[in-house]
Write a protein that binds this DNA or RNA. Structure first.
Lengths: 151, 151
DNA sequence: TCAATATTATTAACATGTTAAATATAAAAG
DNA sequence: CTTTTATATTTAACATGTTAATAATATTGA
């Protein structure tokens, strides 16, 4: 948003910037939909993880939703104030919590999943399944590279 | 950072998350280097744009460094307090400013550009030039897709 | 000219990213 | 058993992302 001109710059060959722009392109419509639903992209990720996986503790949620724990702490507070999740103490380990999605949270997902799927379908159709898979393969391969930390 | 385990999850096929992880993989070492230099990734982007392009106004900087203007406003304030940039009023249009990099800013770039280049070289060598180009092509193509806004 | 409109930049308000420190509890070492 | 160490989560502090509103100046058009 705010950068939709033709872009004849040299930053096209900068991987960090290209990743940034691609993410914005993909997330823009999704963020737009979610703002109508009253949740952010990250809150949506947390809700979907909880919906798919059931009860989890915050560390597991952070790992699966690609959020850092300090961010997740605040997000869980927000989701709780919106009554979209439930928190219970862990029965044996008092350091842990057990987080699960609430009925309202599940309903929010139901209300928006169809449109979310449509956006995915649009991407697959317009961009192409083969190219999408190729892109995902490259991204995953990049992510799994090992770094011989030179320190 | 904080998610470097083998990742056998299904989120590997989610484009938004894959883009997020790839960006983290690429930016992690760079952020690490820059924190030693006392600047953030975004401040570094602004300094490099100014170094390459000369004097620019904030709108142009925002466009070229992929930042939104409100973010840039704060970043310019920070960079000015660090004496890494210079601000002057525009001679004819009093709404505009003219931002340029300072001597200290240019020196900061000189001091870190070599290591930055080494990280790029490492990526090209380990990941491979051909795959890197293929990835950049796919990302740019994705970015240039048009969206028939269904609203 | 002057009122309406557009442009440039900032501010405000809230959410998240990021690193370090703090807190509470659990597990391990002695 | 208790001192040490590790784990789980939160808090703190600062920077940025994001949208809306604001302020100042420029431009346009009646």
């Amino acid at each position: 948003m705010g950068m939709n001109q033709p872009r004849p710059t040299e930053t096209n060959r900068s991987l960090p910037i290209a990743l940034l722009r691609a993410r914005e392109k993909v997330m823009g419509p999704i963020r737009n939909m979610l703002s109508n639903a009253g949740v952010t992209e990250q809150q949506w990720r947390v809700l979907r993880v909880l919906d798919e996986m059931g009860t989890l503790d915050p560390t597991e949620i952070a790992d699966r939703s690609c959020l850092l724990l300090p961010s997740l702490t605040r997000i869980l507070q927000t989701l709780q104030s919106k009554q979209l999740i439930l928190r219970e103490p862990h029965p044996t380990d008092r350091r842990k919590q057990q987080i699960s999605i609430s009925k309202a949270g599940r309903q929010l997902i139901l209300d928006n999943m169809e449109e979310s799927q449509q956006l995915t379908t649009w991407l697959e159709d317009e961009f192409g399944q083969d190219k999408l898979n190729a892109l995902l393969d490259l991204l995953n391969e990049l992510d799994q590279m090992e770094r011989h930390t030179p320190s």
